[in-house]
């Protein structure tokens, strides 16, 4: 069942040091699949945070450089990376010291999973 998918997410997370959570949500921030460790900040897992990011991505697409593909925000303690995979959003929450390049590189590894999940979301 979905546990297998979560297991895969956890396995990907284990490859990179400092990653706290991987969330695949729709544009409104409703989680489709998520995997998080205990160290993940609760705020970043809330729908309000994830919705705002989805909207911010749309707004950032209006800046004149075409649609935004990825957003990386680095805060004091955490960094949050988003991939825009319409109609889904992939959000990764990691420690600010985690390797950002490695996190961005996960997009390719997650692409097949996201593709499978897209089919589930498109029906609704």
């Amino acid at each position: 069942m979905a546990e297998e998918m979560k297991k895969y997410l956890h396995e990907i997370m284990s490859q990179i040091d400092g990653i706290h959570a991987v969330l695949i949500t729709d544009r409104d921030g409703v989680p489709v699949l998520k995997a998080a460790t205990e160290s993940a900040p609760e705020l970043a897992l809330r729908p309000g945070f994830l919705t705002t990011v989805g909207m911010a991505t749309d707004q950032a697409g209006k800046l004149g450089m075409g649609k935004s593909q990825r957003i990386a925000c680095i805060y004091g303690k955490y960094q949050v990376i988003h991939f825009n995979r319409f109609p889904l959003m992939v959000s990764m929450i990691a420690s600010s010291t985690a390797n950002t390049g490695m996190l961005l590189g996960l997009e390719a590894e997650l692409s097949s999973l996201v593709q499978d999940l897209k089919a589930a979301v498109d029906v609704i």
């Binding site: 069942m1 729709d26 489709v32 729908p47 499978d116 999940l117 589930a120 979301v121 029906v123 609704i124």
Partner: peptide
């Protein structure tokens, strides 16, 4: 939000098989 999350769960479970 809860309705949609539940629907997603069902769909994902079906896809995951």
């Amino acid at each position: 939000y809860l309705d949609r999350a539940r629907q997603y769960n069902q769909r994902v479970a079906a896809t995951a098989q």
